[in-house]
Design a binder for these strands. Structure first.
Lengths: 232, 232
DNA sequence: GCATTAAATAAAGTATACATTAATTCTTGA
DNA sequence: TCAAGAATTAATGTATACTTTATTTAATGC
């Protein structure tokens, strides 16, 4: 009964393995552009950089490679994969097929107001962030909206795959966010989609989301072309 | 100029690494049920089995884990993942969203007869296999049809992902293929889809494929329930 | 001085040794 | 006999040593 777990909470931290640590740090550094697209390094270099041996680094790199974030080049080490307009087109095409299907299914399930709460919250925050002109916050809540919708749908494979696609386009989204007008229309579309989910109109939800995705994709691709951003 | 590459062609074989070898063999054994769902083994056991050290085995297992074919259990080794009806439902839902989108895009592109040749060939072979009652051949050409369509579309991420989903449901497809009536309707639907691709009717192609996928999924799920196959 | 080829270099690929830790088994006491 | 706990076991997680091989550099011959 003297059961004290605390005291040295520092030692009872989640206990992360080196592989997990390497994976998380590398992924985060890629997302934040600390390791920019095209960056190339050898395994020993990365191992030193992360303060561990090659073994866990290799295992983390294999995972990042499988997720399409880096390329393992036979005798040259790793390269952080740049995203080309073609990549963007391909990825958004997949998102345009998957997310509307999820939205449609969620609407058909007639979700309760409680289930929709995370979506409502995310939408409100997007609106607030937009008013405040805080683009980073807006992007964060946009992410939250899409994740909440997928969670609600409950197809874990779909959720995981969409998440990995979002990871791949993250850098490009961040860059282009500042090259375009404020995402007023996009925010409105989220509000509209939410109303379709509420009313249980599955076809309207699908259509609404599909057109949202298509316009997002077109806008993005237009910017990449306009600014000659052939590599991100 | 004396440059001869041949002579010892035996030495210039693809030259496969141990990791690749382990990956391919394990995957093949999982597909063929040599390693049945639920099969569990430790890394050293698998290493002995494959005649190599743990290192390449681990790396191959990480890839198989990322693809959803095995589960790496903290201290228990690997387990070949069984497919449950829920998994099947989730996977077919994704396929139902992705493949019709690809079919629609291909139709819109008005493919040439030459481009459609692999699809025509696969369909003919499915019809022949059906007449001959050769279910294995039928399944093989069914696969070929779907792969050819995705290749034609050209979205490599989409192609790769669909392929990995097919890998996951492969065992279940093989089993259920023999529990149901001959796939007459399914074969006809392929022929029908092909005609829509030929005529460039993208909406018809999408609808046709979507209903094909849905009926396939329903049939499959029905069989799993009817035969109480809660794990494959 | 250039091209061809050989040697050196360094990275990935692989094996193995070691550390850590969860599970199991054995022991001990009630 | 059963329960609690300690010791053992064995598997993963990690580091390191070694092997193979592509690339680069150096050397040699024309």
């Amino acid at each position: 009964m003297s059961g004290k777990v605390s005291e040295n909470d520092m030692t009872s931290v989640p206990k992360t393995s080196r592989v997990e640590d390497a994976y998380a740090r590398l992924k985060s550094q890629i997302r934040s552009n600390a390791l920019p697209p095209g960056f190339q390094a050898t395994e020993p270099e990365i191992a030193v950089r992360l303060g561990m041996s090659r073994t866990p680094v290799r295992e983390a790199l294999i995972r990042l490679d499988a997720e399409g974030l880096v390329d393992l080049i036979p005798r040259r080490g790793v390269r952080v994969l740049p995203i080309s307009p073609t990549d963007m087109r391909d990825i958004y095409e997949i998102l345009t097929a998957l997310e509307p299907a999820a939205a449609s299914a969620v609407a058909a399930r007639r979700p309760s107001e409680q289930e929709l709460a995370p979506l409502e919250l995310a939408t409100s925050r997007m609106e607030a962030a937009l008013d405040a002109g805080d683009l980073d916050a807006w992007a964060e809540h946009d992410d939250a909206f899409h994740n909440a919708l997928l969670d609600l749908h409950g197809n874990q494979r779909l959720t995981a795959y969409v998440a990995s696609l979002f990871d791949q386009v993250h850098r490009a989204r961040i860059v282009t966010l500042r090259l375009r007008d404020l995402p007023v229309k996009s925010t409105q579309e989220h509000r509209e989609l939410l109303s379709h989910l509420r009313s249980g109109d599955s076809e309207a939800a699908r259509t609404c989301f599909a057109s949202h995705r298509k316009s997002t994709a077109n806008e993005l691709l237009g910017l990449l072309e306009a600014f000659k951003l052939s590599q991100l």
